[in-house]
């Protein structure tokens, strides 16, 4: 993938990574975009960013992924980063129940600052820490169904689930968007969506379950 010419893509989607600090957002990003993992990474200050292109249903989708600091204090400054985001990975740490409890707060954060129809996927990271598991898969799945979120467990450390998570959310965004565009009888191929532009998605949130409900 790395050899791909970055400029050639059919769609550009902005995704944000959110969740408590220390749940592994930055490592999810580096695992997905560079296939790197750093056990000793520093906390993210402000915002970081990386891109990667994937194929979905015959289209090249370029993901522009924004990684924000998890600490409460930064919310005021990071709220601007939700602008134009069409997807969010809401990450918690399966070995720290508190980070799962805060998921509701993050959902509120999204309601306050992000587009109403943003696609949200709940991500239970650090699934490699089996012996330390504090959030059961069933519990998280029930929660995600209740809130109409897609759900997956990942491990940035051993890479399991990471590509799938991004692939699913990007495909989901693409489907919602093309469905909406067809409905509006607009041309689906708008190759130059630039960063910051709002991409309206279907309001039909029930559809979100269909894609990623299974673990």
């Amino acid at each position: 993938m790395a050899a791909r010419v970055d400029e050639e893509y059919d769609y550009l989607f902005k995704i944000v990574l959110i969740g408590d600090s220390g749940v592994g957002k930055s490592n999810l990003l580096s695992r997905f975009t560079r296939n790197e993992f750093n056990l000793e990474s520093k906390s993210t200050i402000g915002v970081e960013f990386a891109t990667k292109s994937i194929q979905a249903e015959g289209k090249t989708i370029k993901a522009q992924i924004w990684d924000t600091a998890g600490q409460e204090r930064y919310r005021a400054i990071t709220s601007a980063y939700y602008r134009g985001a069409v997807g969010a990975l809401l990450v918690y740490d399966i070995s720290k129940h508190g980070t799962f409890e805060n998921v509701e707060r993050w959902l509120k954060e999204l309601r306050d600052h992000a587009e109403a129809n943003i696609v949200v996927m709940l991500v239970g990271n650090k699934s490699d820490l089996r012996h330390l598991r504090a959030v059961e898969t069933d519990e998280a799945m029930a929660f995600s169904e209740q809130h109409n979120l897609a759900f997956i467990e990942t491990s940035a450390l051993d890479a399991s689930g990471v590509d799938t998570a991004f692939q699913r959310i990007l495909t989901e965004i693409y489907r919602l968007m093309s469905r909406r565009n067809v409905a509006a009888e607009e041309a689906a191929n708008q190759p130059s969506l630039t960063a910051g532009k709002t991409i309206s998605l279907s309001q039909d949130s029930n559809q979100k379950k269909g894609c990623c409900a299974s673990v």
Binding site: S21, G22, K42, S43, Q71
Partner: peptide, 14 residues
């Protein structure tokens, strides 16, 4: 305290 303890191991880890 939780936040501090999350950040301590991530302070200048190199």
């Amino acid at each position: 305290l939780r936040q501090v303890l999350v950040d301590v191991p991530r302070t200048a880890p190199e």
